[in-house]
Amino acid sequence: MNSAETKVKIKLNSTILPVDGDRENYEMWLDGSLVEKSGKTYLRYTERLEEKEIRTTVKMGNEQALILRGGGVKMRLPFNIVQEEIGAYDTQFGSMPIVTKTRHLSYDYNEDKSMSGTFNVQYDLIISGQAVGKYTLEIQYSEVLE
Rank of each mutant, 00 (worst) to 15 (best):
E5I: 15
Q83D: 15
Y26F: 14
N13Q: 13
G32P: 02
K113M: 12
I67Q: 02
S14Y: 02
D108A: 14
K52I: 10
I10R: 01
T57I: 10
N80I: 06
E24L: 09
Q64E: 14
G87E: 04
V99R: 05
L145W: 08
N62H: 09
V144T: 09
R103C: 06
S106L: 07
L17Y: 09
Q83K: 15
K74V: 11
L145M: 12
A88L: 15
S128P: 03
V144A: 04
G117T: 04
K101F: 05
E27T: 15
L17S: 12
S116G: 12
T102F: 04
D108V: 15
L105I: 07
D90K: 12
E5H: 10
P97N: 11
T118Y: 07
E63W: 07
M75I: 02
L68N: 08
S33G: 10
S14G: 11
S95G: 08
T102H: 00
G72Q: 00
K59C: 14
D124C: 04
E143S: 05
K113N: 15
S116P: 01
S114C: 11
Y107I: 06
S142I: 02
S38E: 14
D112H: 10
E53K: 07
L66K: 01
D112K: 10
L34Y: 03
Y42R: 03
A131Q: 13
E85Y: 10
Y42V: 01
A88F: 13
G94M: 02
G129I: 05
G70T: 09
T100Q: 00
Y135M: 11
T136N: 08
Y42W: 03
T6F: 05
V8T: 02
L77Q: 02
E143L: 06
P78W: 00
L34S: 00
L49W: 06
G87R: 00
D108C: 14
K113F: 12
R69H: 11
Y141K: 02
M1I: 15
E146Q: 11
D22Y: 08
E53H: 11
T15P: 01
Y89D: 00
T46I: 12
A88K: 09
K7A: 14
I98V: 13
M1F: 15
K101W: 05
S33K: 06
E138D: 11
G94D: 04
K7P: 13
T102P: 06
G72R: 03
L66Y: 02
L12A: 04
I10C: 01
L49K: 09
I139E: 00
T15K: 03
G129H: 05
E143M: 03
E51A: 12
I67H: 00
Q64R: 13
V19N: 12
V8F: 03
L43H: 00
E84W: 07
D20R: 15
G87C: 01
R103M: 08
T136K: 07
K11C: 11
L137M: 13
G87M: 00
R103S: 08
T41V: 07
M75V: 02
E111Q: 12
Q83W: 10
K52M: 13
I126L: 04
Q130W: 03
I139G: 01
G72A: 01
L145H: 11
R103F: 05
K37I: 11
I139N: 03
E84F: 10
I86W: 09
V132I: 12
L43K: 04
V82P: 10
G39Q: 03
K59Y: 07
Y89G: 02
D31Y: 07
E143Y: 01
N62L: 06
T118K: 08
G71F: 04
I81D: 01
E36P: 03
S14Q: 04
